[in-house]
Amino acid sequence: MNVQFRLKAAVLSALMFIVFVVLWHGLTFQQSHETEGIPLTSEQSALLKASGMSESDMQAYAAKGLVFEQIQQIAGLGLSSADIDAAGGIESFGFTTGGAAEEAKTGFPSPSLVWEEAYEQIRDPFYDKGPNDKGIGIQLKYSLLRVGAGFLLAVLVSIPAGFLIGMSPLVNLAFTPFVQILKPISPLAWLPVALYIIKDSEKASIFVIFVCSIWPMLLNTAFGVASVKRDYINIARTLELSKFRTALTVILPAAAPTIFTGMKISIGIAWLVIVAAEMVIGGIGMGYFVWNEWNGLNLASMIFAIFVIGIVGLLLDFVIGRLIAVTDYKE
């Protein structure tokens, strides 16, 4: 029954995805239209010839859809076909559709184009062609390392601090104003400050991850610890457990699901933020990859990267979700 239910959900998911891709394909599908040549009149040919353009050149331009005025301009500038080729070829000038440059050349990429791009990237995820061009696997590795480092630091700080805040109403009240002020600050706003203070973009991005992941964990830990049932603590008290052992063997397992829920929120935010931070800082990482593709306006590549970011986010969420499931308990 349960398996069947899940299967149904999976089929539904797949169906939605297929509909999405088909829609996407339909919306981005473009008929590759033939360029319609505009034949030159004999007077026009004569005029062009007089400006020094060869017969074959002018016929070639006309066949590619350039209007007479444009061919005349080329002739007037004294540009040979070799010159035009050196400048990227007449096809790159945006005239070949009949003169209107405003017709977007680079529309939204079709699914097949994105797949081609994705395939290129997935086939060789660890290539290294210099500091600014590395495979998606290497970019991912760096982003994950940064998130890992910042997140781990945040865990090391926020769990003990959360315990302190959760176990003492006094500390809780004293900390509240700071937490409330610091929490809503966009992590990216810290970036310039971190860059200025830390003077190292790598550490600054780790710091930003640290700052953004600390709050949900801190608050959830404090909340989880504060709301541990009095009864559980009474058990520890009647058994004369030390404060430390009580924290470790009673409060921690009791609050663990809440703490891990905080971690789940944190890692989600951290993954969101690292991409944004890397877009600003550059260098290497998924954010840099997206930025670099944006810089080249390669939408297909960006969409692929967005998929990858989403899937990794999903995996991170899943891993912590497993931890929650393992530590969760029913009363």
Partner: peptide
């Protein structure tokens, strides 16, 4: 192609003209 247009100085200006 874009880089070549820039570095050679032979380029379309977006108004339908070719410049050198």
């Amino acid at each position: 192609a874009v880089l070549k247009q820039i570095l050679t100085g032979i380029y379309p200006d977006g108004l339908g003209n070719i410049k050198n």
